[in-house]
Every structure is written in C-alpha cells, then in structure tokens.
C-alpha cells in the first residue's frame, strides 16, 4: 500500500488574470521506504508538491491520501498533529530559531508533543549524538557552519521519530563537504526504514535516491527508479552532455540542469518532453522509464 497517494492534485495561486498554476493535476504515489529525489527547474512546482505532501499547504483540487487516510481537507489542529507525529521537515534555509540553542531547537517538536522538559532535552541530546553534533549542543545556530546547522535541522526533523522526511533542497546552501555530510545522514535515515523525499537541483545527488521524479511547469514529466550509488539516467544525460564551466559549479550544488544548458538543447528537450506529459495527464498512472 502506498504511503503517500496523490491523485490529480492541482494547486492554483492568485485569482482572476493573475492565476498561476503551480501544480497541474499531478498524480504520484510513494511507497514506504522509498528515497525519492524530485528534480526540475525553478518554479516547476517541486516545493509546492512537497508542501502539500507535508501538510503545510492544501491542494486546490484533487485528493491526497496519507497512510490510506484522506488528509487534503483536515482541520488545522489535526493537520498539526499529523505533521508532528509523522512528518519531519528539512529546509534549504535550515529554519532553526536563532534565539534558541541547537539543543533547544532540536527539542522544539517534542515540546508540542507534550513531553517534559528533561525528557525533551534527553531525546534531543541523543538525536544530536546520532548526527554527530553532541559537542555543539549549547551553540547558537549563528555560531555554526551551514553543514552543522543543517545536521541540527535534520536532528530536529528526526526527533519525533517520523515516518516521512521531507527535505526541500537540503544541500542548496551548502558546499560539497556539507552536502555530502547531509546526504549521507539522509541516506542513513533511509536505511533505517524511513521514507525520504527531497528536492534537489544537483544531479549528482540522485546517487543517493532510489527513485527520481522530474517536474516541469507543474507536471511530473519523468519518473524513474534509480540504483543507489548511480546518477539517475535522465539526470546523467544532463550532467554529462553539457560542458562544465568549473569544478565549483558542480560541487556547490548549483543547478546544472538549467544554468549551463545551451539554449538549443533546452528547446530540444522541451519539444521531446511535452507530448509525453500530455499523454500522462489523461492516465492515472505514471509511466516509469527504467
């Protein structure tokens, strides 16, 4: 049974002439234990999709079943409870509270769960140990490097023992070392049986994923399973077919897909992709290319 099941989910922003279609009848199902990478150009709806899956946002149309339960129209308090119990968030900009120490930040979700202060700090401390941050417990976020902050954020996402980890460009602000640290942590979490969904611009990071979903203009245009340790095929095509400008571009996790792709290639690719997407829209299942 699919853990996450989206059917014809659309999301519209604004109204009247200013309406923007962020998601266009997306259908997607994710099973327990999958490590899903979502790729695509900026503004293609990746984050919107994540926010809806993470119950931070509601779809305008369509249905969303989480663990076989319809959740797209939950009351705010029930949605909060579900977020608290089953979902852990990791953000590109870390989103730790600057006035709290690392330990207090990690303990925050437990406070909303009703744990006592000592229990909270105990659990948070052991979680920080798991991500290798035990000697930074009493530091403030401003005193840490990006990689360290993101590790703390991961500890915060994990502290509630969620089944789903949702990460929106977790390595977007990190250098190559930070990226590796964070991805290896996520990979470990995945090995322990958690479902991890993350958005990235960096094709290299698809090595960690078991499945890669490509999006464009609010549509899922490609969905492939990928072997662990291998860059996904579609991503590899983009990664190796274009000349690299410098090593830094690659390592910094900057979007190679969009940034250095020659204009002609992009047009070709779009022309090739468009008809497929139309076909998929009518069907309910998504064709995967293996």
């Amino acid at each position: 049974m699919a853990l996450i099941n989206l059917e014809d989910v659309s999301k519209l922003y604004g109204f009247g002439d200013a309406t923007t279609l962020a998601l266009d009848e997306v259908s997607l199902s994710i099973n327990k234990g999958e490590f899903v990478a979502i790729m695509g150009p900026s503004g293609c709806g990746k984050s919107t999709l994540l926010n809806i899956m993470g119950l931070l946002d509601r779809p305008t149309h369509g249905s969303y079943k989480l663990s076989n339960r319809l959740v797209e129209r939950l009351s705010p308090s029930r949605a909060a409870k579900l977020r608290r119990d089953t979902i852990g968030f990791i953000f590109q900009s870390y989103n730790l509270l600057p006035r709290l120490t690392v330990l207090e930040n990690v303990a925050l979700p437990l406070a909303y769960k009703g744990y006592s202060l000592t229990r909270r700090l105990e659990l948070a401390s052991s979680m920080l140990e798991r991500v290798g941050m035990q000697n930074r417990e009493y530091f403030y976020p401003s005193q840490l490097s990006g990689g360290q902050i993101q590790c703390a954020a991961i500890a915060r996402a994990l502290v509630n023992d969620p089944t789903i980890i949702i990460a929106d460009e977790p390595t977007g602000n990190l250098d190559s070392n930070g990226s590796r640290l964070v991805m290896e942590l996520l990979s470990e979490i995945h090995k322990m049986g958690n479902t991890v969904i993350f958005v990235t611009h960096n094709p290299e990071l698809t090595r960690y994923a078991t499945r890669v979903v490509y999006m464009h203009d609010g549509l899922v245009v490609q969905d492939e399973t990928s072997d662990l340790g291998q860059v996904a095929k579609t991503a590899r095509r983009n990664l190796y077919s274009v000349p690299r400008k410098s090593v830094e571009d690659d390592l910094a996790g900057v979007s190679l897909l969009m940034k250095v792709m020659p204009e002609d290639d992009k047009k070709d690719e779009l022309a090739e992709e468009k008809p497929k997407s139309k076909r998929r829209k009518r069907g309910t299942t998504i064709r995967r290319r293996s």
Binding site: G54, P76, S77, A80, R83, R84, L97, Y112
Partner: peptide
C-alpha cells in the same frame, strides 16, 4: 517566519 517554523514542526493553532 518563526510561527511558520513552529507550525511546521507540529505546533497547533492553540499552542
């Protein structure tokens, strides 16, 4: 933004 973070990690409206 802080309110957003708190809600994302599970704070309810009441909290």
């Amino acid at each position: 933004h802080e309110i957003g973070i708190r809600k994302a990690v599970g704070a309810s409206n009441r909290q």
